[in-house]
Each structure stands twice: as C-alpha cells, then as structure tokens.
Design a protein around this nucleic acid. Structure first.
Lengths: 350, 350
DNA sequence: CCTAGTAAATGGAACGTTCCAATAAATCAA
DNA sequence: TTGATTTATTGGAACGTTCCATTTACTAGG
C-alpha cells in the first residue's frame, strides 16, 4: 500500500520551496545554509517520509561508510564476542558494520566477500574460514580495499593481523601444569590446517622443553575442536600404556569434552587429571569444576581490530602493523591442588 | 598502491571492443548476446579487475538483493542460531543477508534500522530489542519495506511473526513436572516487558490450573534472564517458608544458574529440586546433570522466517501470516526420578 | 553611489549502472 | 530482388545523489 514512489531530494526541495542542492547541503549538515532554511527543509524531510539513498550518494562520494565483518562461525560465542567488540567501536565512529557468517566454509566465504565488495565496503575485517586458500584475498587486494585478519591468520599472507598471543598462552598454561607437579603432559585437540593450532602447540612445546619435560612425556593428540573432540582425545589418552596426568586443550570446548569424559569414567577433573582450556569463554567460569583457561579477550581484540581498520581507511592505506593481544591464565579449579600433595593419596590417573 | 581508478563497464567495453550495453547484458547473463561475444567480454572483465557496483545498479533496478537481519543479541547462541538458519536459506536463494546486532539496545536498533534502510534493503527480519517502543517500526512500515519479526514480537503490532509456541512449551514442561509428582511449583526468571515472558508463563499457569495445582502453590519469581538471575531466583525460592520443589525456568541460562545455586547449597539438581529450562541450547545436553529443556529449534525458525520473507518480497506485499513453530520437551536428568519414589528417602528441598 | 566582499542558494554535470527504443546484420518467404 | 522477421548490438536517458562554479542578495568601505 503505502509504497508510493520513493521520495527524493527533489520532492523535499519542492515541499520546502528550495533547490535540491540546498536539501543536499542540509542533509550533510553543512554550515553554509541559513538555520531557518535548514529547519524548513528538515520539516519537509519528515513530511514526505524521505529515506536517504546511500547507494546514490556513494556513486559520487569516493568512500562509503560501511565496513564488512566476515566471521567464520557466529554460533561460537568466542567469535560472536569478537564481532560485538568490533561493532561497538565502529558504531561510535559513525561507521555501519555489517556482519556476515561463513560457517567455516571457504566457498561461502568467497560469495560473501564478493557481495561485500559489490556493496562497496570501505574495508573488511575477516576471521578466515578453515581451509581458506592462500589466493582467496588476491582479488580484494588488487582492488585496493583495506583488509585485516582478526583472530586467525593465513600462512603466508601480507595482510595485517590482530590476534592473541597464542604461543605465550600455550606457554603459560603449560608452565602452570608443570608447576603443579605434572611430568607427563598432553596437548588435546585441533589440527594442523589451522595456524592457531601451531601457535598454541608451539607454546606448549617450548614450555615443556624449557622446564625440563622429557620429550617422550610430551604428547600430542589431534582431534575435533569440539566437546566431542575432547571426549575422544581423553579416551585416547587414558588408553595409553603410560597415560598423561594433565592436558592443555586447544580450546574450551575440547576441555569441556575432556572433563565430561573424565566424569563418565568416575574420575574427578582436577584432582585426578588436570585440564586447562583456551579462550576462556563465559561458560568456563560457571562449569563444575570451574575451568582454568587462557583468556584472550576476544571483545578487546575486536575493538583493536576495528581501530586498526579505521586508521587504515583514514590514511588510505592497505597496510598496517600486526597487533598481538596479551593473554593471561585464569586459574580456577580444573587443575586441582599441587600434585606433590596428591601423591600420598592415590596413584596415576588410569 | 594498486588502487587506480576503479574499472567500470566502460573500461570493459573498450577492452573487449563492444558497447557498454553489451557488457551490461553479459553481466546479467542475458541470452541475447552471442556466446563468443560473451566469452570475450568475460575475459575483459577478468583482465581489468572489475568489481560490480551494486549501488549504481540499484539506482535503476527497482529492488536490491540484500536483506537485513537485525538481532538483539548475537552473543547468545540461541539467537545466533536463528541468524545462521536464516542465512542458510537466503544464501541459497541468491540473496545476500547482512546481520546487524543491536545488543538489546533500542537506540542502537534505531540506528541500525536506519542504516539498513539507507542501504536499500529489500526486506528486514528483526528480533526486536527489549524495550523497543511500539512506534519504532512505523517509519519502515510507511516506507513499504517488508518486515517480519522472528522469535520475539511486539505487543500490538501488525507485523508478521515467526516464533515458537512458547505457551505450549510452558505447558508441556509444567505438565512434566506435575507428572513427576511435584505439587508446589515456581516459574523462575524473566520480566514482564517481554512478550515471550507472558507466553511462557501463561503456559505454566494453564498447566497448573488444568492439572489441579492450588493457586497458592503456583509461584512466580521474576529475575534477570541470565545465570546470575537464576541463582538469585533460587535463593529467593529456598528462603520461603514453604519452598517449592520444582522450577520451570524462563530460559536455559536461568536454569543453569539455578542448578549452580543448588549445588552450592549441597543440593543435587534433579533428586532434590527439579529444574526445567527453555530453549534447549547445546550446552543443555552436556551439562551435569543434563538439563531437561523445551526445544524450540531456532535454526528451523530462522529458515522459516527467511522463507516467509522471500515470499513477501516476491509477492510485493508487506503482510504475511504468523508462523508458530512446534516445540518439544527434551527430557534429560535435571528433574530426577518421580517424586513418589523419592518421598521415602528424604523430606523437602530446604 | 559604486565596488568589494561575504553569505546563502542554485543549476548542471558527473557517478556506474539498466532499460528502452533504435539500428545493423543476417535470414527467410515470396 | 524486396520486404518482413529474427538476432545481435548499440546509444541515450534515467536513477538519486554530490560537488563545483555560478548567481543572487546583502553589507560595508570608500
């Protein structure tokens, strides 16, 4: 019904008895027009039910004010937080952020990127989908659109990255476990197609080596990065001849899975087998037992990424420095008391 | 660097030795042009690094192919699922869905809606922020943009709604508790500014009345819709002179909170106090004890909403029928065994 | 009273597409 | 051969803005 031909600045101009140029000036808040005129125009804008056509405007203006955030998995609160963090700063900078989800699917990612480009975004922040091919961003780079990676990076890309210090996180968590007296450790979950995996695992390895863990006591079990993956990892670990007594998990989901599996076997996460997670999602705090985890502050990283992007846009460059966010280990209950005190009461974890 | 003036169809035309109109036709996949010509043009498109300018196109075309999804809280996996479900069907319909988050803030919602309108969306699916004023969508309605509400509705709006059968969900869950032998029940969490609250509570009330629960044994404790809210509700309930023995919670977060609080008091959720959640988020299944909850299939509702929107756009109407999605109670462990058998072992829950 | 100078408002061209009407080339019926 | 028909291609106007160069109306200085 109500949809008569959309009102344009010409309609406003007629209604207010001025020229289209004047209306345009008012729309842009120019100080050149007489206040009374502005008021008159603004009233006309209301009256005709005008809605600004940004597409038409962008045809003349060099830059649009929308930026795209491409997220690999919005269903994961960890990445949702990232998006929300970015959104916060963009919003307050007068930039309109649009979020698109790729569901960890490179093909979908390609489509989404194409759409965003066609929409004329001023910039793009991407948490790339698993399995993204190295060339996926070439077209965007040659188009000269500012791009930044958040949270994840691609192996040999020159695109700036805003990510947590995964290596250090892995180190800190492992050092904590070793400090508790554990001498046979395992890294649970993740797979080598993800750069993040190598980083976290790298921290684990370095801690083990630096703090005197025998190489044969430093186990690695790959697996899905989900609860189910965690369950599987734990089963595998406990089936070993000499099972480990502590695990650093690729992420919290894996850790939850591992704890679940422990419980199912009648073992208590913490006293019987130490578990550390990664990411520190909200759930970690509320779990039973509360999960010790490496906090990466995804919302904060999102904010940082947004600031970087804004700077890139303003300075019309497509380059920026990487930002590596600080991490810190949040110690809760899932690692139990120090292992020395435990030795008295019972043997190994199997 | 690479950012020389953006290539247009004129550049392609020159490169391919045809007219701009021919290029346009190729771009639209028209069958009118000779295949060889099309090939030639497509090659030129590649060569000049062309990116389609949808804004310019929309200036002439009546309708755009982007639709906006406005979500109240992306951080909540429940709503994220909804968004992802919608995305799935839009994507396969060749429509580009952009997600925007309002963080439960009506002001932000207003801004987001404005932006989306200016961007020229073909339609809008909204899960309105808490506290949205009734008039918030008037401007969009008079602009003639198709809108649908998903998951939540506004009190007296004529905008079509796609939502779960909250009333029935409340009824089913309550009937389950009563079937277990509980006679003094409480509804935990939520507040009356949310239509959903009234619906779920309505189901609770109806079940109590129908199944012979005394009005004085039908308690209601409002509270935040979060873990913390659940904790508070439980404290309040157990502080009563005659505490209830079972709770239907507004959502799963409240239920988790309640269970946490029970544990803290040394009570076991299930045997000592029955808890039912609402929404059936993934966590519910993995909790300890696993949470009995009303499953609403948010992804499915999202898909449904997307289909409704597509139909609205195609038929150029702004009206559509409401869709009420089926719910079902997923029984797990958080309600314990039947209360009759329990009576032998111990007394009330306080 | 004229000239500068400032403030406010305006007309026209441009942005990159689509679509219509028109043209050009090729095919066919007679 | 001619005119009609089909097939492939094309130029021009339009879409709703912005921005530049002008115009118009005042004010002030001499």
């Amino acid at each position: 019904m109500a949809s008569r031909a959309k009102a344009t600045i010409f309609d406003i101009a007629r209604e207010a008895g001025v020229s289209k140029s004047t209306v345009s000036l008012v729309l842009q808040g120019s100080g050149l027009i007489r206040p009374e005129t502005a008021v008159k125009v603004r009233k006309a804008i209301e009256d005709v039910g005008y809605v600004y056509n940004r597409g038409a405007a962008n045809l003349r203006k060099a830059h649009s004010n929308v930026i795209g955030m491409v997220i690999n998995d919005l269903t994961n609160p960890f990445f949702a937080e990232l998006a929300v963090g970015m959104e916060r700063v963009f919003q307050s900078a007068g930039i309109v952020p649009f979020i698109a989800n790729t569901a960890e699917n490179p093909v979908r990612q390609e489509e989404v990127l194409k759409s965003l480009m066609e929409q004329g975004v001023a910039g793009l922040i991407v948490s790339p989908a698993r399995g993204t091919t190295p060339g996926a961003f070439r077209r965007l780079e040659i188009a000269g659109v500012p791009i930044a990676f958040a949270m994840r990076r691609l192996p040999e890309s020159r695109i700036p990255v805003i990510a947590p210090d995964n290596h250090r996180g892995g180190y800190l968590a492992t050092a904590h476990l070793i400090g508790k007296g554990h001498r046979r450790l395992v890294f649970f979950g993740g797979s080598s197609d993800l750069v993040v995996y190598h980083e976290r695992l790298g921290g684990f390895r370095e801690a083990c080596e630096t703090l005197g863990i025998d190489t044969r006591d430093m186990l690695v079990i790959e697996g899905e990065t989900s609860r189910r993956g965690g369950i599987a990892c734990l089963e595998t670990a406990l089936a070993m001849a000499e099972p480990p007594t502590a695990a650093l998990c690729f992420n919290d989901a894996v850790a939850f899975g591992a704890m679940l599996a422990l419980r199912k076997r009648g073992l208590e996460p913490g006293p019987d087998f130490a578990v550390v997670g990664f990411d520190d999602v909200v759930e970690a705090e509320h779990y039973m037992p509360a999960l010790t985890s490496v906090a990466v502050d995804s919302a904060g990283l999102g904010e940082r990424a947004a600031h970087v992007m804004i700077k890139m846009i303003q300075s019309r460059t497509t380059r920026a420095e990487d930002h590596i966010g600080a991490v810190n280990l949040v110690v809760r209950e899932s690692c139990g008391p120090d292992r020395r005190t435990r030795n008295r009461s019972s043997g190994g974890a199997a």
